[in-house]
Each structure stands twice: as C-alpha cells, then as structure tokens.
Design a protein around this nucleic acid. Structure first.
Lengths: 139, 139
DNA sequence: AACACATTGCAACTTTGTTGCAAAATTTTT
DNA sequence: AAAAATTTTGCAACAAAGTTGCAATGTGTT
C-alpha cells in the first residue's frame, strides 16, 4: 500500500519527491496551519529555502493547501478539503487564531455567513478569521 | 481654525510633525486603505523609509489607523472610526478588496455577524474580508 | 529663549522573498 | 532496464521588506 502523501501527490499530478513528501507530512501531522518559517525551522538545513518556497507555491496552485489571511504579515498555510482543485479553492470555512498559543485552526464545521454588500459590490470570496482563546488555552 | 489632521493628532496626544500631518492627510484623502508601499511611493524621497514605518506603527498604537488582514502578505492600513482608542480597536466592520482595481474599502455600515464557535473557543476579535468587484469596476 | 523630550534621518543589518542556471532526481519512452 | 525527456532541486546572487542604535533635528514646555 502507498503512503497517504504519495496518494495525494499523485492525485494532483505531481511527481513524488522527498521534499514534497516531507512537507506534506508536516501538514498532515500538524493540527493547525503552518507558516513558511515553521517549515524552515523543522527541516533546518535539510532543504533549501528556495525549495520550500517553491513547494508551498506548487501546493497552493494545485489545491493541496490554502492561504489563511492574517493581520500580522505572516502567511499561514493549511490543508485544503477534498473539494479543492487546481485553481479552484473552496475554503469557505472559518479560521481561528489563538492569541495565546498562536495556533491557527480551520473550523471546518463553522461556515461563513452570506454578507449583504452595498449596491454595486459583488462578492467573490469571503475570508473570516476569528481570534481569541482556543480550547487548549482556556483557563 | 486648525487643520483636521492637527486636531486628530492632538486628540491622540501626539506631537505635530510634518511627517505625521502628511501621512495622515493621505489617509483622509484616500477612499480606501493604504499599504506602506503606497505611502512610500507618494512621498518618494521626502521622508525616510524608517520614519514611515515608525509613523504607521505609532498611528496603529494610538488607534488612528487599523490593520486590515489579507492573504497576500501586504499590510494594509485604514482610518479607524472615532470609537477606537489607544490599545483598543473596535473595527468590527467588513472590509472589501476589489480584485480588479485593488482598492480596499471599509464597509462601515456592514457589520460582522456573530459566529458560533465550537466548545472551548472564545472569540476576541472577528475579521471579515470580502473580495470581489467593487462598484467602480462592475461592467 | 532655553530646557527637556520626542521625532527624524542615516547607516548598517536581518529577514523575507525572487530569479537564472547548472546539477540531480523523477517520469516517460524505447 | 537503460536512455531520453522533463521536473525539481540547490546554489548564488539579488531585490524587497522590516528593524535597531545613535546622532542630529524639531517640538512642546517653562
């Protein structure tokens, strides 16, 4: 039987390389979202910085991971659900960032409400990020 | 009578300097949000890069402007409403980013709905950014 | 006007992200 | 299973973004 990561990579028509397997595994093992810096730290000198940038970029393009918007200028990535494909992300769930431990969660079961916009405005995508205290950090 | 910018600066207990007056005026004149790069371009060599960084930082701390979260890693700033004070931002309105012209609007009259979170999660702040086509760019 | 204090500009540096190209690895073809 | 074609990786060099310390200038106060 093949590894889960290999299946995912094949499904998105990507060649199987050590870098991709390892980085994808980080996401599978991690509860929350990861930043580029997170990945760079965990792999230390194993992979080149540039390779990590390019791998993440490829994963986003192929619909394997998605970008979570934030106010602190640190791009966070998280795994997409199965209904995301290349060029078409469908991540209309709520994201939660813990002010305490910094973990970013995808709240897959909390959906984003429809927003009534002023006349002339057409919505294409809605990003909703809630910050506060997560279930692990509550006193 | 004093200039509007001077009144605002005094209200937030900031000393009146050319840099602060000019940068604050950019925000008053601009319909949408501004990035650091926007301001740097408009002032060209007039002010040092570092000064712009520090001025924006000060404005955020004092509650004059707020940061708009985004997925593209470019920090956007916009004027706060009057009920924001130092350390306490109350910007629970919806932000809109136009995919066409790039303008970011604060939709002050569209309020953010309450989100039901899973057990153990406590919300502190909710950021909602809608992207799509704005009223100027609709065909 | 003189003082204390805050702000600015400069220089140097760190971090983050990008691009071109040759070497290595992966996939495809024979 | 080996060779050819294609991708991916790592290196180097660079560009952009953001930070810090310090002297000089400007602002507010007495």
């Amino acid at each position: 039987m093949q590894e889960p990561v290999v299946i995912t990579l094949k499904k998105h028509q990507l060649s199987i390389t050590d870098t991709r397997k390892k980085i994808l595994n980080f996401f599978l093992e991690s509860a929350g979202a990861l930043t580029h810096a997170d990945i760079e730290q965990r792999t230390s000198t194993e992979f080149d910085r540039v390779t990590i940038y390019r791998t993440l970029q490829t994963f986003v393009e192929k619909g394997i991971i998605h970008v979570i918007p934030s106010a602190d200028n640190a791009i966070r990535y998280a795994l997409c659900k199965d209904n995301c494909a290349a060029g078409h992300h469908h991540d209309d769930h709520v994201h939660f960032m813990c002010d305490d431990c910094g973990t970013t969660y995808c709240l897959d079961h909390v959906s984003v409400p429809k927003i009534k916009l002023p006349k002339g405005f057409t919505a294409n995508q809605t990003d909703l990020v809630v910050s506060g205290v997560c279930h692990k950090c509550e006193a």
